[in-house]
Computed example of a mutant assay.
Amino acid sequence: MNYKLKIKLVHEDAKLPYRANEGDAGLDLFSIEEKIIEPGATALLRTGIQMELPKGTEAQIRPRSGLALKHSITLLNTPGTIDEGYRGEIKVIMINHGKQAFKVEKHMRIAQMVIAPVLHVTMEETDVLSTSDRDSGGFGSSGQ
C-alpha cells in the first residue's frame, strides 16, 4: 500500500526529508539553523517543516548513527513520537555526549524519521494474564 506524507516547508531554508538510499527505512531531516552544542548540553533544532501523516501512522524521530559514532551526538526522547494529528513544526532535541563542542550547520542531516503504523487497541481490565517462557523476567534476566 502506498501512503502519502504531506510536507509543508515553513521556512525559506527548509528542505524536504528524503531517503539517502532506496529501501532505507528513515527519511533524513535537516537543520535550518547553525548552532553550537557544548559537551553535555542539549539543543532544540528546527527543521522548518510541518507535515500531515497518513491516517493510522506515527513518525518516529531517531538519531543518525554517523553522528553518534563520530561525534557522540544523539537525540533525547529517542525515538521521539510525532502523533498523526500534530501539525506544528518538526523539531529535534540533540545532546552532545562528546568531549568537544559540536557545530550543527545549516542543511546538516541531524536525524532520521521513520513512518510507522500505530495499532489502536481496546483496554480490557483483567485479574489473570497468560503465562509465557519469560514471565516476569526483566532487566538482565536473559543473562546478558
Rank of each mutant, 00 (worst) to 15 (best):
P17A: 05
N77E: 11
T47S: 03
V114H: 04
S130A: 11
G140V: 07
E105C: 08
A59Q: 01
L69M: 14
T57D: 03
K99Y: 09
V114G: 02
R134L: 07
K99D: 14
K4Y: 08
H120Q: 13
E34N: 07
I36F: 11
T47P: 01
R46L: 08
K15C: 08
F30P: 00
L75F: 15
E12Y: 14
L5Y: 09
I7C: 08
I115A: 06
A14M: 07
D135M: 09
A43S: 11
V114E: 06
G26M: 07
I36K: 11
T78L: 13
S130M: 05
I73Y: 13
G88M: 03
G40W: 14
I95F: 12
L69H: 11
E52R: 10
A59H: 04
R109V: 01
N2Y: 13
V104C: 06
M94A: 06
A20M: 04
L9N: 00
R62P: 05
D83Q: 09
E33H: 12
M108Q: 15
K91N: 02
R46P: 03
S132V: 02
E12F: 15
A43V: 00
E125H: 10
H11E: 04
T47A: 03
T57L: 03
K70A: 14
S141L: 06
A116M: 14
A43T: 00
T78R: 10
G140S: 11
N96R: 10
V118Q: 12
H71T: 05
T74C: 12
H71F: 15
V118F: 14
I37V: 11
A59N: 00
E22V: 14
D127Q: 10
R134W: 05
A20E: 09
A111L: 09
E125S: 10
F139E: 08
M1H: 13
N96L: 12
K4A: 10
G40H: 12
L9P: 00
K15Y: 10
S132P: 03
M108K: 07
E33N: 08
P17T: 02
V118H: 12
I95D: 06
K91H: 04
L76I: 05
K106I: 13
L27H: 06
Q144K: 15
Q100I: 11
D13R: 13
E34M: 02
I90T: 02
I115V: 15
S142T: 12
I73D: 03
G143L: 05
S141I: 02
E124I: 13
T81W: 13
L76W: 04
E52Q: 13
A111S: 15
E22W: 12
G138S: 09
V92N: 01
